[in-house]
Computed example of a mutant assay.
Amino acid sequence: MLQVLHNPRCGKSRNCLAFLTEANQDFEIISYLQNPLSEAEIKELLQKLDLNPLELVRQKETIWIENYKNKSLTDHEIIKALSEHPILIERPIVIKNNEAIIGRDLEKLQKFI
């Protein structure tokens, strides 16, 4: 079964869920804003996405701009920021077994599922 890190206030995230529903895919919604991922879970997610920590950050979010932008941060510091401020995590993320994709592009998502 697919898992989707979902933010209900995000249009791209809602579009992803609608796409998966129309494609008759079974999925579990992970409400990562209410239940933030631990640093270990973020590291595991990064491996599944095959991304470095900075590539997972929503760099236009106010929290990032005010607290982290233009600072020289280690991967560990970025992961810690993502854990402490889950709003910074790109969304939606669709997880299938040991792989994951940021599901903003529905064509890529269709190929992934």
Score class of each variant (00 low, 15 high):
Phe27Lys: 00
Phe27Arg: 00
Phe27Tyr: 03
Glu28Pro: 10
Glu28Arg: 04
Glu28Ser: 08
Glu28Trp: 03
Glu28Leu: 00
Glu28Asp: 10
Glu28Asn: 05
Ile29Ser: 03
Ile29Pro: 02
Ile29Phe: 00
Ile29Arg: 02
Ile29Asn: 08
Ile29Gln: 03
Ile29Tyr: 05
Ile30His: 11
Ile30Val: 15
Ile30Cys: 03
Ile30Lys: 13
Ile30Glu: 07
Ile30Ala: 04
Ser31Gln: 12
Ser31Tyr: 14
Ser31Cys: 07
Ser31Val: 11
Ser31Pro: 01
Ser31Ile: 02
Ser31Glu: 06
Tyr32Cys: 13
Tyr32Ser: 07
Leu33His: 11
Leu33Met: 08
Leu33Lys: 02
Leu33Val: 12
Leu33Glu: 12
Gln34Val: 02
Gln34Trp: 01
Gln34Pro: 12
Gln34Cys: 05
Gln34Gly: 12
Gln34Ser: 15
Gln34Ala: 14
Pro36Trp: 09
Pro36Arg: 05
Pro36Phe: 07
Leu37Thr: 04
Leu37Gly: 07
Ser38Phe: 14
Ser38Val: 02
Ser38Met: 00
Ser38Lys: 13
Glu39Cys: 06
Glu39Gly: 10
Glu39Asn: 06
Glu39Pro: 10
Glu39Arg: 08
Glu39Trp: 04
Glu39Asp: 12
Ala40Leu: 03
Ala40Pro: 03
Ala40Asp: 14
Ala40Gln: 15
Glu41Arg: 05
Glu41Trp: 06
Glu41Asp: 01
Glu41Gln: 13
Glu41Lys: 05
Ile42Met: 11
Ile42Gln: 11
Ile42His: 13
Ile42Arg: 03
Ile42Val: 07
Ile42Leu: 13
Lys43Asn: 14
Lys43Thr: 08
Lys43Gly: 04
Lys43His: 05
Lys43Leu: 10
Lys43Pro: 05
Lys43Phe: 02
Glu44Ala: 04
Glu44Phe: 13
Glu44Ser: 10
Glu44Val: 09
Glu44Leu: 08
Leu45Ile: 05
Leu45Gln: 09
Leu45Ala: 01
Leu46Lys: 15
Leu46Asn: 05
Gln47Gly: 09
Gln47Val: 01
Gln47Ala: 14
Gln47Pro: 06
Gln47Asn: 11
Lys48Val: 07
Leu49Asn: 02
Leu49Gly: 08
Leu49Met: 15
Leu49Asp: 09
Asp50Val: 05
Asp50Ser: 11
Asp50Met: 13
Asp50Phe: 01
Asp50Tyr: 02
Leu51Lys: 04
Leu51Arg: 07
Leu51His: 11
Leu51Tyr: 13
Leu51Trp: 08
Leu51Ala: 00
Asn52Asp: 10
Asn52Gln: 12
Asn52Gly: 06
Pro53Glu: 09
Pro53Lys: 02
Pro53Arg: 03
Pro53Trp: 11
Pro53Asn: 04
Pro53Tyr: 04
Leu54Pro: 09
Leu54Ala: 08
Leu54Asn: 08
Leu54Val: 14
Leu54Gln: 06
Leu54Arg: 14
Glu55Asn: 12
Glu55His: 13
Leu56Thr: 06
Leu56Asn: 02
Leu56Ile: 08
Leu56His: 05
Leu56Glu: 02
Leu56Pro: 03
Val57Met: 00
Val57Cys: 09
Val57Gly: 00
